[in-house]
Design a protein around this nucleic acid. Structure first.
Lengths: 190, 190
DNA sequence: CCGGAATCGGACCAGCGACTCCGGTTACCA
DNA sequence: TGGTAACCGGAGTCGCTGGTCCGATTCCGG
């Protein structure tokens, strides 16, 4: 591992890179990963050449977007969990993850389809997030708030599943709330 | 609405059409909807010309596959529901739908992306299925097996969500079972 | 203020996948 | 059994998208 970037990146280059990441995040999440690369470049106010210099391939761009979102989510989860009793922390983080993961499945799926080894390029961020979730789950179980036979894989699957369920009820907050109620009720020890 | 096909379709044509539908169902569900059309034709043992004569566009093929799967599912649901008490019928059908809907979201999403008005081409089959589900839900609620404040949209969203959740646990039947337990427990009236 | 190197940007290239076309073949009907 | 209309098949067309290249431009140290 060579350390940080050997060269601190020129001012305009850094600006463009950041802008590209922002725009890509926005466009990919709202319109899907199939949107042409050129459109992202245009939306960011740069040429495709610039885009491809910063991210040598479209998958690299996707990957960068996913990693950043994951890191933000991990940090926010930690912040949210701190200073709450285990049961509350668990539920609050569950909600946060679900809300943030809108459209994320499509990302990882696209990455996997492209032959990128997701477990290699995202392992670091992903493992950190999973560790956080494992901690939250264990604490909630110790506190008697969640049935003890539930493992981390099931929790992750539930998060993903509830995410897509909620996506289908985007315009009905009351219905979304009922989904959460059902799942939280089902998660309590019997 | 003109009635049935004005001409009964030649023997080989009918055979090819059926074979195409079967192969397309298989390939699309196992390898995704992005698989080239030509490959489906080859797998079915026909040329692309034949494929495109039967289904004038790739979306038409997708649509036909989805409609057929939906119709089968609806029929099987009805059969399964008959002769069971409401609570059991509800759960059994829930499981059935979840199991069968593996990879179906991708279909409808692809259709929607292609600009096809899903609510126009699939309305008939879709409405029938929704009606069945509504009946099952209402019966289960009357029997006191499901919390009464749950609507059909929430049920559909849950079905889709549990479907994707279960997909992530494809190789761990015990974990899948736990997901079902959680959701069923959460669905009971408090 | 200036030189030079890094960056920008869009015209260009290549591969792929959906769809068409038409000569050869095959199934139905009298 | 023969005629004909429908069907088969795959080579070719067209548009689109990811990715490259190089002249023009812009930033930064001295």
């Amino acid at each position: 591992m060579s350390g940080a970037t050997p060269r601190p990146l020129r001012a305009d280059a850094a600006r463009n890179r950041a802008r590209l990441l922002d725009v890509a995040t926005e466009v990919f999440t709202t319109r899907g990963v199939t949107v042409p690369t050129e459109e992202i470049a245009r939306a960011a106010g740069v040429g495709v050449g610039t885009l491809f210099r910063h991210f040598p391939t479209k998958e690299a761009l996707l990957e960068a977007v996913v990693v950043r979102r994951l890191e933000t989510l991990t940090a926010d989860t930690a912040r949210l969990a701190a200073g709450h009793p285990p049961a509350e922390a668990f539920r609050a983080c569950f909600r946060l993850v679900v809300e943030r993961s809108a459209g994320k499945q499509e990302f990882t799926r696209a990455l996997a389809d492209a032959g990128v080894d997701v477990h290699a390029s995202l392992r670091e961020s992903s493992d950190l997030m999973r560790a956080r979730l494992a901690g939250l789950l264990a604490a909630a179980q110790r506190a008697g708030a969640v049935r003890p036979d539930l493992g981390l894989p099931e929790l992750v699957a539930l998060l993903v599943g509830v995410g897509t369920a909620v996506e289908h009820l985007a315009d009905d907050p009351a219905a979304r709330e009922r989904i959460f109620e059902v799942v939280f009720a089902g998660l309590r020890p019997r």
